[in-house]
């Protein structure tokens, strides 16, 4: 049986290729990314509840604490460090303007969720925005400023 405690995987992060990197099979993707220098991916709970570790895997938002690094073999990953396109620059400016970054712990996950909202092209009400970000905990802002920022982004992007 070809089962292993260490695996060699290849993947892409923010367009940069990584080939044949050794990963312990028990390591989750968030820890692995952080060990590779992508420390923008934060870890709050390691049980899927807080959303701070949310990244994009093959175009879809996932909790990187609930994916094994070994499962990322062959995947195209995007972390907060790679959010540099025009739309995400605009989102970051909006967050800054509304003071939606405070300690910044929840921010990578909030930005990822905002990206999904904007890509879905849905015109959301403030209540619906709250429901969409219900999977991301923020312990600083009281959410108000984050909802303000996302509302502004929705109006500008659509």
């Amino acid at each position: 049986m070809a089962a292993n405690n260490t695996l060699s995987i290849s993947f892409t992060v923010n367009g940069e290729k990584f080939n044949n990197v050794n990963v312990p099979s028990r390591q989750h993707l968030a820890d692995f990314l952080r060990s590779q220098g992508f420390t923008g991916t934060h870890l709050g709970c390691e049980q899927g509840a807080c959303g701070a570790c949310t990244i994009e895997m093959d175009g879809k938002a996932v909790r990187s604490c609930l994916v094994l690094a070994s499962q990322a073999n062959g995947s195209d990953l995007k972390t907060v460090e790679g959010f540099d396109d025009k739309m995400m620059e605009q989102v970051k400016q909006s967050f800054l303007k509304h003071n939606a970054f405070q300690c910044g712990f929840c921010s990578p996950g909030m930005l990822m969720t905002t990206k999904e909202i904007l890509l879905s092209k849905k015109k959301l009400t403030r209540d619906e925005i709250r429901s969409e970000i219900s999977g991301n905990y923020c312990r600083c802002t009281g959410y108000q400023s984050i909802v303000d920022a996302i509302e502004e982004c929705i109006n500008e992007v659509n």
Binding site: A3, L7, R26, H28, D31, Q47
Partner: peptide, 18 residues
């Protein structure tokens, strides 16, 4: 269960992956 454990989380124990 996590509450009963005093909220202590750890990393996964070793296992092989297939």
């Amino acid at each position: 269960i996590c509450y009963l454990m005093g909220g202590k989380y750890m990393k996964a124990a070793n296992f092989s992956y297939y």
